[in-house]
């Protein structure tokens, strides 16, 4: 797997707290809550501030009840369903997130489309997984802090997704971190896993608050990895191009 950038190396961390981000974040907010974007809508910037939007497809993987649907809702700023209903097909969620690149100071809107599909549905219907894999850019591997087996199964899950063409960002997310009192997974185990895996384990949990602070670390981390992957691919591509020229 391509080396993952140090968190904060490529994009400005916690940019939503800076004054110069307000113009951009206000486009994804409505009455102090996150705006929901349907397919025909997107954030509209005034002409003098026009920015590019980059599109990515992200699959959320993990066993039933681990918190996939809740994570998609959280990242979009929706309230989290209190009941667990199985997701009996594919559901996608659109998330817009402004990001400031550290080096150039350039601002981009990331349009992340999160693909969520219940494990049982994937098992029962063969056509769903290929559909989720089509033109995929990233996978989030979920485990729950309250479910030991979901943590133990991570390496298995990740192994299933390593193919010859490795243009896929892979991140691990621990859910239900707010229930640390009932945690089945210790900090030391998480630390050890991070060292072996060579990349940080992101965490989520608790109530959805303003829809910015509670998701900034995760969305910036995801955006950074996606951007990095594109940069690596672009430089390889241009090297190949110059190679053939000579």
């Amino acid at each position: 797997m391509a080396p993952v950038p140090q968190p904060g190396a490529a994009v400005v961390a916690d940019w939503h707290r800076d004054a110069d981000s307000r113009e951009f974040f206000s486009r994804i907010l409505h009455k102090k809550r996150r705006r929901k974007f349907s397919l025909l809508e997107s954030p509209v910037m005034p002409p003098h501030l026009a920015v590019d939007t980059v599109h990515y497809k992200v699959f959320i993987s993990g066993k039933s009840g681990v918190g996939k649907t809740a994570l998609a809702a959280r990242l979009a700023g929706r309230s989290i369903p209190s009941m667990h209903y199985e997701t009996t097909g594919i559901e996608t969620t659109v998330v817009y997130w402004p990001v400031k690149l550290r080096e150039s100071g350039r601002v981009l809107f990331f349009r992340l489309q999160l693909w969520d599909c219940g494990e049982n549905a994937l098992r029962r219907f063969d056509h769903l997984l290929p559909s989720c894999k089509e033109q995929l850019d990233a996978v989030l591997f979920l485990f729950s802090f309250t479910d030991r087996t979901s943590f133990d199964d991570l390496s298995n899950q990740i192994a299933k997704w390593s193919g010859p063409s490795d243009r896929l960002v892979k991140l691990v997310v621990g859910t239900k971190y707010d229930l640390f009192m009932h945690s089945d997974v210790t900090e030391r185990e998480v630390t050890r896993f991070q060292e072996e895996w060579g990349s940080p384990v992101l965490r989520t949990g608790g109530e959805v608050s303003d829809g910015l602070g509670d998701v900034a670390a995760l969305l910036n981390g995801l955006a950074e990895n996606l951007w990095h992957q594109d940069c690596v691919a672009a430089s390889q591509h241009s090297q190949q191009a110059t190679g053939t020229l000579i």
Binding site: L39, L40, A73, P81, T88, I90, E91, T92, D116
Partner: peptide
């Protein structure tokens, strides 16, 4: 649920109770 699009396998209780179709839904 607020999702933007879906691909749901559905059986039709009268028209196709044993073969699933795909219900594609898009939030415009």
């Amino acid at each position: 649920s607020g999702s933007a699009s879906c691909d749901y396998p559905v059986f039709l209780p009268h028209g196709s109770p044993t073969v699933a179709h795909r219900l594609l839904r898009f939030q415009l």
